[in-house]
Amino acid sequence: MTARIGVVTFPGTLDDRDTQRAVRVAGAEPVPLWHRDKDLHQVDAVVLPGGFSYGDYLRAGAISRFSPVMESIIAGAKDGLPVLGICNGFQVLTETHLLPGAMLRNNHLHFICRDQKLRVENNSTSWTADYEQGQEISIPLKNIDGRYVADERVLDELEAEGRVVFRYADWNPNGSLRDIAGITNAAGNVVGLMPHPEHAVESLIGTGRTDGLGFFTSILKKLVHAS
């Protein structure tokens, strides 16, 4: 029996099919979840993929946060359900307060799409165990609202508790405070990041690197060990 990983589709979600593919490539079973459906269909983990849910109108992630499926995901996350938010999914997670902080428009005000180098700062979360502490990986980044901000107290707390999971290495592409690219909650089951690991799972496609596959193999191993 393999792990079942839910992939949520909101109106305006773009990377749901890519994320399902990444789950499949890692050897797990992707389960499509629909925003209007509260039922999580017994999945073992959930990914909130990237895109422009509800057109990013009002504020990125602000409307999706109120969808029926999120009620179940928020409750599940508090009980330890592993949740990964990528890009727009990360924005949704901050809107739900499962993760602290917020994302503002990039400091250069442009959409930016590039192969981005990251440093793994915490390899003990549900989604990063297959990486080495301090390892540098390159995965695509693509967003216009990617500048991570939080107040000093929260930033200090995140750092003190080792909850910064990824930092931008070499170059900070959007003005994120303390070069933060991704964070986790205190329990380590909820992770959000702006770059896109699901776009870096096949050597043929995109940048030609597979540095993103570790997210999906990490969660798969954790779930298979647990069962």
Partner: peptide, 13 residues
Amino acid sequence: TDQYDRFVQGNTV
């Protein structure tokens, strides 16, 4: 061109 997403859909060779 870096202001355009070239990766989405996961089929860009």
